[in-house]
Design a protein around this nucleic acid. Structure first.
Lengths: 214, 214, 214, 214
DNA sequence: TATGAATGAGGTTTCATTCAT
DNA sequence: CATGAATGAAACCTCATTCAT
């Protein structure tokens, strides 16, 4: 959509001599991701990006339409990734509770693995053009819908309580997940997988049916 | 600290005729809060703020040191409010589970009541000067600590499980709360109090002890 | 001219309780002199001056017409002082060479004694209003004329050479004197009087007649 | 250092058609020099500079980091020029008295030839950033040292008196030189070379040894 | 494919001064 | 005499983007 490549892979093959390691657009995206997460989109200048990527401004504008376009690409990448993981898990076999637990833990791990993406995506929506914002919101809604459908499935089967509407459960859980980027630190005592397990446990426990509630 | 007034109230008395309703610094803060929430701190110009507050730029800089200072004040206000509400609830009488539930529901309601503040405070931390960021983080930590101490109290009493460390529980819950501003809409079907009740319920249920887990 | 006093002394008597030590206008001038010398006229704000003098802005504008007015007063004070010292020396008895030597040494000492004044007056002329600039230049010319007349007197008597025109001699010497403020430091090895003596010696030696030149 | 050019000459070659005469950065420096000398650094706005140079503000900031940077460049240019001239003269053959006389006269001529530079450099030091100030002072000290070494050489040979320390002699003389810009006017009766000759004569005469002093 | 000079609008902030009280 | 809120013009600087080469 934004990256103008000339093959069909979505990413041009690494050809030029100047980047033994990575293609120019890939380097630009990687650098932009880091800088946007560190300093925020508006505080990061195109100049800084191209300097950090060791690329000229002209080159950047060759591959991307605008600075906004970089942000758009980052959002697209995040959404694509999360959606594909959830889809994969959702269509697996097995009890719905297990699939929900797996999905809940997985999104935590993948969020932590791409913490810069998470930082950006929860903080920069309003910096996209309104039209793009709508697209992102729509895609996010589709994601939530998919997750919600799993919760509803569990509720219908009676393995999950319906004391709390599934909508609320989903927003509740993804709020927690999105906020990982505000407190998670790689030096912490817990590994991403452990955190994922705890988060999933909290969700599953909250959904346990028939509690002799107080 | 930031608002340069010369009485002791923190806000000058309303005296001039031109603002029957509100003092100049108060108007500026109110307008800035709305605009920062709508468009983000960096996208809001001082020009827009003073125009919306019907004040001259000079007047704004008479009361506030800088645009940053406005943001700092907003953070201070939010933290002051949340902390005072939690302190109040924490020191009430009654079973710890009830106090946690009350605190959990209350923070949801007060977050929704000040949704612009919530939007700003979860999105704009990095726009504060590093020193101020640290202060905000410290105050936020004290808040979390207080909440955590309630959870730990319940765990020690055996009314809450300790399957998940109290730290994680707290971060988990406040992630959800902070993210209310990304999806809550006044036109929605649920009232703030209903949402608060659901959120508190999810937390309390997740903390129920002795689950015959799976 | 600028200080609005109500007696006739040029400086109001110290009356108010708030300044046991010095009158308000005097304090303002003293502070302004120090700050103008330290940071330059344009870099010193009225706010800084009144803060350092512990006086309100209103009070300053009560005593002085403007910030420019402070500078004008400083110039007036310097010129008044130097002129009176030179006049005093010029009309003393004794050989002209002695009077020139005395005047030359004296201006060095008095320049060092008021080093801030010297700093300001050699650096800030262009910050006065054109009309005031002319006045200062005129007064300075009168000063130079008086000094020059002594040199010419010596040349006419044959005690000074006239190899170099008296004009040039005077500009030459006062260039040196005015520049004292760029290198003199109170911690230096030489006292003001020693420097004065050396400077006077250099002038007098340069004026010695009948050199078997080279 | 300051001018961002990408060749190695320090000044880009004149290529574009719109400035047949001079490159953009050169024009900016020339205009800034004139304006800083006329009105002072702080009184000259960037707007005035770019208007006079017929350049946009953006273009100026493309070549110079800041307004300060322009001033820094001017200082660098002055110091470079003066130092190279003195070095050249100092290492010539011939009696030391002749070399001193030549250097003394030459600095006068070159100061007058670049009178705007002189005006700026003696008045604007405090407008540089402290770090740059130190650099300028250091370079100026090296210059003085070189001159002083010539004076000392003469004193050691006995062709100059040592009644006055060489330090003082040097500060004395360069005070006079720097102040040329406060009184020299092209319409005056004397040519730069004549003034240079007179100044050098005054210095040399002051240094004549063995005066039957008074 | 890539360069880098140039644009020009808009950003935040400073500050001498006034004036009602 | 003194206050301090308010003014408004002007200051320096940034930056995404374009375009001739």
């Amino acid at each position: 959509m934004a990256v103008r490549t000339h093959g069909g892979t979505g990413m041009p093959a690494v050809t030029s001599a100047e980047s033994a390691e990575s293609s120019v657009p890939r380097r630009l995206l990687a650098v932009a991701t880091r800088l946007f997460a560190e300093k925020g989109f508006d505080r990061t200048s195109v100049q800084e990006i191209v300097a950090a990527a060791d690329v000229t401004k002209g080159a950047m504008y060759h591959y991307f339409d605008s600075k906004d376009d970089l942000l758009t690409e980052i959002y697209a990448r995040v959404l694509r990734l999360q959606m594909s993981r959830l889809t994969e898990i959702a269509r697996q076999e097995g009890p719905v509770a297990e699939r929900v637990e797996r999905a809940a833990a997985d999104v935590v791990v993948s969020t932590i693995d791409n913490l810069d993406d998470a930082t950006i995506s929860f903080r920069s929506l309003h910096q996209l053009r309104p039209e793009k914002q709508r697209e992102v919101r729509d895609e996010r809604r589709r994601y939530h819908e998919l997750f919600r459908s799993l919760v509803v499935e569990g509720q219908n089967q009676g393995v999950f309580t319906d004391r709390v509407p599934a909508d609320i459960v989903v927003d509740f859980y993804f709020g927690s997940v999105h906020h990982l980027s505000t407190w998670y630190h790689p030096d912490g005592a817990l590994s991403p997988r452990e955190i994922g397990a705890y988060y999933a446990r909290l969700l599953l426990d909250a959904l346990r049916p028939a509690p002799a509630h107080r």
